[in-house]
Design a binder for these strands. Structure first.
Lengths: 234, 234
DNA sequence: AATGTTATGTTTGGATCCAAAGTAGAGCTT
DNA sequence: AAGCTCTACTTTGGATCCAAACATAACATT
């Protein structure tokens, strides 16, 4: 995929994620091509990619439409990531952590501890957490013995609300986010503990539960049973 | 996707699955276009689709190559299907089976019983089982409350060895296949039982284990610890 | 007036053309 | 002789052109 081709896909992904195109709306090749200032060819290629990613779906015989996602879909996508990351964690626990891998995971655990040690959260901490969180998850999934699991997770993460780094959202309420990240950090440490001790089932269930943190921790803070907020970063 | 476009994708999928192109081999647009008797455009579109499906991967800066799959990948893909179908089953058990759904599942259970009642397997029974097995799985996954899980499974099933209907293989050894299908039928009935009683965890674990049937039952028959055989149907 | 048929317009899919990027090979220089 | 550079060829990506399919609207017929 060339740079500009990739750019068409990601620009389109961004536009869809931002709700520029209404869910259910028919989306034409020419319109998008003009909008993005390219010819129809890269748009046609991008449509196929986005169809596979699940952001677009066929609109009858002709053309595509923006896929509509319900709250149930969001919940399901998070659960899917949970079971897949859980599978990765269990496999990793069963095959045993190599010293190098334990070292690697310790790094991200430690960075998390340092980030939260000062007892509050700053604006710029958000990116740091996002990065270390991503690396922690990537390391586990990438060490599960086959890229197949990671691929499945990556495909699921194309749904903009399902990705693991869609946790941190509200830069305005940093104290609430701090408590959320504290819980996330604890969960990371528990997963690591289970992995080190070869406790496959425990690692799996912890990882599954961890997936819900972006979704359900709001209830603990009295925000109601909603779905949390849309993600901030991309 | 037009008919011929779809045909290019599926014809390519078939060729790759049959090992016509060697894993790791660079695959060029012009070569494939000539081979299939179409222009480069539909081939380019198909390559994007197959890349998303995981059958092709980028070969450096230029072009694609056929993805290579190890035994570990095959095992992982089956496990991925297991946890996803397990998730669907658990959700279904937790939300409760509607009478209509129980009725629907009973049909496929019953058809399975009838198929196996005569005590042996005939050549033409293979297709019948393949169909009812597919419908049983589809019904469960399709009723899990969101298409997201089904999509994830569908994407995983693009790996030719991961699909649920890749169970039945060896039309030469029908007595061995009969015993395999007997076990599969029992597992279907146990899953159904768990679903009816709202036993989410049990339904999940049964469904997970059921995923392995195409892979591991060979060991029970003294065929060695291999991966079973490649699938027969498409 | 209502329905069916035809014609026109819109949109997608396939083919071809052109440009850009990359790779390999040959020749030159040190 | 070895390494570097320049050139030519291969291959991919983007744009445009043409054909086919589908939808819509208008007109005619019952």
């Amino acid at each position: 995929m060339s740079d500009s081709d990739k750019s068409v896909v990601s620009r389109l992904r961004k536009l869809i994620g931002e709700g520029f195109y209404q869910p259910g709306e028919r989306i034409g090749e020419v319109a998008v091509a003009e909008q993005l200032g390219v010819s129809r060819t890269p748009v046609r290629l991008a449509f196929r990619t986005l169809e596979q990613e699940g952001l677009l779906q066929r609109a009858g015989k002709r053309g595509f439409m923006v896929r509509e996602f319900t709250e149930a879909d969001v919940l399901c996508a998070v659960e899917v990531r949970g079971v897949l990351e859980g599978l990765a964690a269990r496999r990793l626990a069963e095959q045993g952590l190599s010293p190098a891998l334990a070292e690697e995971l310790t790094v991200w655990i430690q960075k998390g501890r340092e980030l939260l040690a000062k007892g509050y959260l700053e604006e710029r901490d958000v990116d740091v957490w996002s990065e270390l969180n991503r690396r922690f998850h990537e390391t586990i999934v990438g060490s599960a013995g086959s890229p197949v699991i990671g691929d499945a997770i990556a495909r699921n993460n194309h749904l903009p609300f399902a990705a693991a780094d869609s946790i941190v959202i509200d830069s305005e309420a940093l104290d609430r986010e701090y408590r959320k990240l504290q819980l996330a950090q604890t969960q990371h440490e528990l997963v690591f503990q289970a992995l080190r001790h070869g406790e496959g089932a425990r690692a799996e269930m912890l990882m599954r539960e961890h997936a819900f943190i972006g979704l359900r921790y709001g209830e603990l803070l009295g925000l109601g049973p909603g779905l949390g907020q849309p993600r901030a970063d991309d």
